[in-house]
Design a protein around this nucleic acid. Structure first.
Lengths: 200, 200
DNA sequence: GTCTATATGCTGATAGAC
DNA sequence: GTCTATCAGCATATAGAC
């Protein structure tokens, strides 16, 4: 059996995650460039020097948060039940995207806002995951078009439009407000269906 | 008559705008917090100290760019011909928004990304202009609903969805690519019409 | 594993020469 | 109007005590 948790001393198994959580929170609120390693350390309750036991530098801390988020997003979508047919898959995508993004608004915010603060190699890696996610939606639209269930028009433009529209929910939705999450999912799905099923 | 422009010496009438242009470019590329006053001065070709003849501080430089952009946007929309009826006004809004945003991608980028770097009073001012712009679209949707020409559902949600979707064009559109600006306007208008005219 | 102390350098902003 | 020189402070990251 493992020994009881010590009340003081070693915390290597929890300090790492706490540092990432603090960095996430602060980066989301003030932006990567505006947050100092001292602030992150202060949030965790350690000294600045101690951070470097868990991350080689500030840039890697940012990259780990962003890349981890995108990897989790892709994995979660791939694990999501899709139903039958392209229209059902599109509905699943819309509801999944909203739900996932509302649950992780800090991660989403960073993943969209801090791209320019990634070093080139890190940017490339994160961007590849983003393109993969966008390609998932594009494939659904292509399938729907081929099956005659949708008329989405220009595929990439439509995919980008849908994702931008859905992601925007994090900028205005407030918990406990006029609309419930279920309302929001429903409304957005109605809008997206109108966009891609539509007419002449 | 005014004297001929001097080739050296006083430049007070052009240095101010050049500083704002340099700040705009650098803020858009690297972010407000990551750009130093020395970099801005270097871009203009003056020393850092000289900047303070044209702006009291860095924060005011950011605020002037953001507030000026929002004011210009509102004024340009109010000067735009709207056609007759809510559907024509909606089409005008879509085409105007895309055109204006593609023409000023740096300003747009800053106006959306640097809100959190504004001091509270400045934030309030910029935010008020943004709400006014969003209210313009919301009013069109309300009018269309009242006239029975649209079924936009939840008004504020739909307005936010449309604006997020349209603004997203600056993140993927590249001049000289597969689609012309006219193509993009046309496609987005088709998507928006499907969203708000739609069915059951 | 965390601390204190420190290196090296850059920051926004100002003072005063020219 | 722009320059050089400078202030006071904070940045990231490291070294070494405990």
């Amino acid at each position: 059996m493992r020994p009881m948790a010590r009340t003081t001393g070693s915390h290597s198994d929890i300090t790492g995650p706490r540092i990432r959580a603090a960095a996430l929170k602060l980066f989301a609120k003030a932006g990567y460039a505006a947050v100092s390693m001292r602030q992150i350390a202060g949030e965790v309750g350690v000294q600045a020097g101690a951070l470097y036991l868990y991350t080689p530098d500030k840039q890697t801390l940012l990259f780990d948060l962003m890349d981890g988020h995108m990897a989790d997003l892709l994995a979660a979508w791939q694990a999501e039940p899709k139903g039958q047919g392209a229209l059902a898959a599109l509905e699943a995508f819309v509801r999944f995207h909203i739900r996932y993004h509302l649950d992780r608004s800090d991660e989403v915010f960073i993943a969209y806002m801090e791209l320019r603060n990634l070093e080139p190699a890190n940017f490339t890696a994160v961007e590849a995951r983003r393109r993969a996610y966008e390609a998932e939606l594009e494939a659904i639209l292509a399938e729907g078009q081929a099956a005659g269930a949708m008329a989405p028009g220009e595929l990439r433009l439509t995919a980008m439009a849908v994702i931008a529209m859905l992601t925007g929910v994090v900028t205005w939705y407030r918990e406990g407000g006029r609309l419930s999450r279920a309302d929001v999912e429903e409304e957005y799905w109605r809008l997206v269906r109108g966009m891609v099923v539509g007419g002449p």
